[in-house]
């Protein structure tokens, strides 16, 4: 798994490439913590290149959302592939996250 990070209009964009599983999720968690442990952080996680996510990946995003909420920040997950979206749906998590179809759409929401 690789993580590409950039910034646009004050929003952090994280693009994940590969599988998010028990082996790779701790690395993702560490990188997320660096970005979200700031007051009012704005973050988009682009999952366009993620074909598989397991429970640990899901839990990593839930924890990230808990921290973002605590810091009055915003987190949007975009570009979910069908298998990844179905994992969110199975765990009934699609309603607690803001899941959007594209990064541009997510940027539009966070830079309004």
């Amino acid at each position: 798994m690789k993580i590409h990070q950039r910034e646009k209009n004050g929003v952090n964009l994280l693009e994940v490439d590969g599988e998010i599983d028990f082996h790779s999720s701790p690395q993702l968690r560490e990188q997320l913590h660096q970005l979200i442990d700031k007051e009012g952080c704005k973050l988009i996680i682009n999952l366009k290149k993620v074909s598989y996510i397991d429970s640990s990946g899901l839990a990593t995003f839930v924890e990230a959302l808990q921290r973002v909420n605590r810091n009055q920040g915003s987190l949007i997950i975009s570009d979910l592939t069908t298998p990844v979206r179905s994992v969110f749906e199975i765990a009934k998590l699609e309603t607690i996250f803001t899941l959007l179809g594209s990064e541009d759409e997510a940027l539009g929401v966070l830079t309004k």
Partner: peptide, 20 residues
Amino acid sequence: EHTDLSDQIIKIIVKVKLEL
């Protein structure tokens, strides 16, 4: 036993599995 996941992450996974 089988992963190096943090306790916080494990707690969330447990909640998800119990919901299932």
